[in-house]
Nucleic acid binder design. Structure first.
Length: 368
DNA sequence: AATTCGGGGGA
DNA sequence: TCCCCAGAATT
């Protein structure tokens, strides 16, 4: 290597690399190899057999921070019930939330319905990135995904998979949490996408990250673009991507009470004003019920929400009167009610009684 | 720029 | 137990 190269700035080196790739067609070769692999090996997922922008949007929203295998049954049920934007726009919010219950990030469901209403009001699904981006719950990733997959618009998606693939292919140790690194990776992805079929290239990048370029244990031996990967050449693929910012989870102990009378259970509907899981139904805490009697502990289980780590103890009890804000709900009709996951788990504990001990054991440990 | 939102699955 | 997942909105 010439001595003069030591005087080059990082930017100059990067620019030279980029020029070399463009001149030799390396970026194009990379994309061609990747796409050929994708068309050969791609998983057969339900949202890959449609070009309906509404269905693409539903899938992309469900896939936000959620694994494909988890999404599949929710996606099928949701589209069976709401086959087009109009059906979703005209639905009751409680019905939408019920189908979403268990999938998490419930603001996604509300925003998706608002988006459907906007599409109906506009008379047609928006076709370009900027107007898709204006739909509620649609950020840079989802707008790029829908615009490229449904309409062939040239916008590269940059999700967790793509960040990981690019960090390794470029051997780039930038913190993928930082906006600067993300902007850099976005430009790289947009460059690779140039001249390709956008929807195909984007899905191929994500598929590579999801099935080959794994967070731990990347499967380089079966990777279709191994020869293009600079981290593989330097053996540093296991150290990438670099991700900063770690948080500590706090532990919280709570009690919930199951009060049953004449086939109904006492529940409270979280008000629309509550930030967290508004509109969902939940069990009372003993403190909510003046004069309640608790006869026994049914069991306990754990539940984690982001960095909050809950231990829930479930009590069986009776109430002298129905407190303000609570209602008796028929137990055999709870399938149509949006329940919080903690409530669903707690009721499941009761349902399996007297095998409650076994139900607790399936969650790993027993408390109380 | 930092936080928050859920739940599940794999190592 | 920890990390990650086809992110977005809010502060």
């Amino acid at each position: 290597m010439p001595n003069s190269s030591r005087c080059w700035s990082r930017a100059a080196i990067r620019k030279t690399k980029s020029n070399r790739q463009k001149a030799s067609g390396t970026g194009t070769d990379f994309a061609a190899h990747l796409e050929a692999w994708y068309e050969r090996e791609r998983r057969d997922l339900p949202w890959r057999s449609t070009e309906d922008p509404y269905r693409i949007l539903v899938s992309e929203v469900m896939l936000q921070q959620t694994r494909a295998q988890t999404v599949i049954p929710y996606y099928l049920r949701f589209l069976d019930r709401f086959p087009d934007a109009r059906a979703l726009a005209e639905a009751r919010e409680a019905d939408v939330l019920t189908l979403w219950s268990g999938l998490g990030y419930y603001a996604r469901a509300r925003n998706l319905q608002r988006a459907a209403r906007a599409v109906v009001a506009a008379g047609a699904f928006p076709r370009d990135y900027d107007r898709i981006r204006e739909l509620p719950g649609v950020g840079p990733y989802t707008a790029a995904a829908v615009a490229s997959i449904a309409f062939g618009a040239p916008h590269a998606v940059v999700d967790g998979n793509v960040l990981r693939v690019i960090s390794r292919v470029q051997d780039d140790a930038g913190d993928i949490q930082s906006p600067r690194t993300r902007a850099r990776f976005q430009q790289i992805a947009d460059g690779w996408l140039e001249g390709r079929r956008p929807g195909l290239f984007n899905q191929a990048m994500m598929e590579l990250g999801a099935t080959v370029c794994l967070p731990r244990g990347p499967r380089c031996t079966v990777c279709p673009v191994e020869t293009f990967c600079q981290a593989h050449q330097t053996g540093r693929q296991h150290e990438l991507p670099v991700k900063g910012g770690k948080r500590v989870a706090d532990r919280i102990h709570v009690q919930v009470m199951i009060a049953v009378r004449n086939g109904s259970v006492l529940l409270r509907r979280r008000s629309a004003a509550e930030t967290l899981m508004a509109g969902f139904w939940e069990l009372p805490a003993p403190g909510d019920l003046p004069g309640c009697r608790s006869s026994r502990v049914i069991g306990s289980f754990r539940h984690s929400i982001t960095h909050h780590h809950y231990t829930i103890t479930v009590l069986e009890g009776a109430v002298p009167a129905v407190p303000l804000g609570f209602h008796w709900r028929r137990i055999n009709r709870l399938a149509g009610v949006p329940l919080t996951t903690i409530t669903r788990k707690a009721l499941g504990l009761m349902a399996s009684a007297p095998g409650a001990e076994r139900a607790v054991a399936t969650h790993g440990r027993k408390h109380g």
